[in-house]
């Protein structure tokens, strides 16, 4: 299953990259969200998969029993998801605002800050 998920992570990344290269602001921002998903999935898959044994300590035990999922990447991904959410939320609103102010949906028209007319 690792192989499938690895390919999936690759496909999500590829889609994200493809979207980042599109003109439309909306697609670019979707690309950003997908890239975040890909990175999280990457982190998840790369540290191995364990089915149906979450890192929880059952009543009566002092430690996690059996071959359980590694809690470390889970904790990292949790943090990464939340951070990613914060940053993406900002980016979404930024795009909305930019669209309102600049009145464009095209990435290609965002060239004002690099023209050397200054």
């Amino acid at each position: 299953m690792i192989s499938i998920l690895a390919i999936l992570a690759g496909l999500i990344t590829a889609t994200a990259v493809y979207l980042l290269l599109r003109k439309s602001l909306v697609r670019v921002i979707i690309g950003i969200v997908l890239l975040g998903h890909a990175a999280n999935l990457f982190l998840f898959v790369i540290s191995g998969l364990v089915k149906a044994n979450p890192p929880l300590i059952n009543a009566g035990n002092d430690t996690v029993t059996g071959v359980s999922a590694d809690p470390v990447p889970q904790a990292l991904i949790l943090t990464a998801i939340v951070i990613g959410f914060g940053v993406q939320a900002f980016a979404i609103v930024l795009f909305k605002k930019a669209h309102e102010k600049l009145n464009t949906d095209s990435m290609d028209s965002l060239t004002a800050t690099d023209s050397s007319r200054g």
């Binding site: 998920l5 690895a6 390919i7 496909l11 590829a14 990259v17 493809y18 890909a38 898959v45 790369i46």
Partner: peptide
């Protein structure tokens, strides 16, 4: 062009996982 860039990055991601696990 974009698709080839995208697929290259995608394969890097997939291969990295497959190598590292």
């Amino acid at each position: 062009r974009d698709a080839s860039i995208a697929l290259s990055i995608g394969s890097i991601v997939t291969l990295s996982i497959l190598f590292a696990t």
